[in-house]
Simulated scan of single mutants.
Amino acid sequence: MEAAGGEENPDALGAAAAADPGFSGHRQTTAKPVWALLEEAAQMKTEGNAFYREKNIRSAIGRYHRALLILRGLDSDVMSPVKGFGPQAPALTPEQQSLLRSTQVDCYNNLAACLLQRQNVDYARVQEYSLRVLQWQPGNVKALYRAGLATLEMGDAQTAKQYLTQACREQPNDANVRKHLQRAEEKLNRELQKEKAMYRGMFSSGVKSSSTEGVNQTNRAGEGCSLTAQPAK
Rank of each mutant, 00 (worst) to 15 (best):
Y123V: 02
V215E: 11
S210G: 06
A124D: 10
A113R: 09
V215I: 14
L115E: 13
A167W: 04
V126S: 02
Q104M: 15
L111Q: 02
Y123S: 03
H180C: 01
L181A: 01
G155T: 03
Q166S: 07
C107A: 14
N140L: 00
E191W: 01
A184Q: 04
M154R: 13
D106N: 08
A147G: 09
R178I: 04
K142S: 13
Q137W: 03
R132T: 10
L181E: 00
L116R: 15
S102C: 02
L116H: 02
Q96S: 04
R118S: 09
D122M: 06
Q171G: 03
C114Q: 01
A112Q: 07
G206D: 10
A143Y: 00
Q166V: 03
R118D: 05
C168H: 14
T159I: 02
Q193T: 09
L99Q: 13
E170Q: 13
R190C: 00
T165Y: 05
R200C: 09
S130W: 03
V121M: 06
S130E: 01
A184M: 04
E153L: 09
K208D: 10
G155V: 07
C168N: 13
Q135A: 12
R190S: 07
K187N: 11
A157H: 05
G155L: 07
M154P: 01
K208T: 15
P138Y: 05
V133G: 07
K142H: 08
Q137R: 14
Y145S: 11
C107S: 11
N109M: 08
T159C: 00
L134E: 09
V133C: 06
K187E: 12
G206R: 15
V177K: 01
Y163W: 12
L144V: 04
Q171D: 14
R101D: 08
R190E: 13
E185Q: 14
C114A: 13
E128H: 12
A112T: 04
R178H: 04
L99I: 08
W136I: 15
Q117D: 12
H180M: 09
Q117A: 12
M198I: 10
R132S: 08
Q97S: 15
S130Y: 01
Y129M: 03
K194M: 11
Q96K: 05
Y145A: 10
E191Q: 14
L164H: 01
S205G: 11
R169A: 11
C114H: 02
V105E: 10
M202W: 07
T165M: 10
N189I: 02
A112R: 07
E191I: 06
Q166H: 11
E186G: 08
D174Q: 03
Q217A: 15
D106C: 00
L188C: 08
N109Y: 05
K187Q: 14
Q166L: 08
K194S: 14
G214A: 15
F203S: 10
Y108N: 05
A175V: 15
S210P: 00
T165N: 06
G148E: 02
S204G: 06
Q135G: 11
L149A: 07
L164Y: 05
N110L: 08
V133Y: 06
Q193I: 04
E170G: 10
K194D: 13
L134M: 11
A175C: 03
A157Y: 01
G148T: 08
Q166A: 11
Q97W: 03
R200T: 10
Q117M: 12
Q193L: 15
L134N: 07
S102N: 15
K179S: 10
V133K: 09
G155A: 05
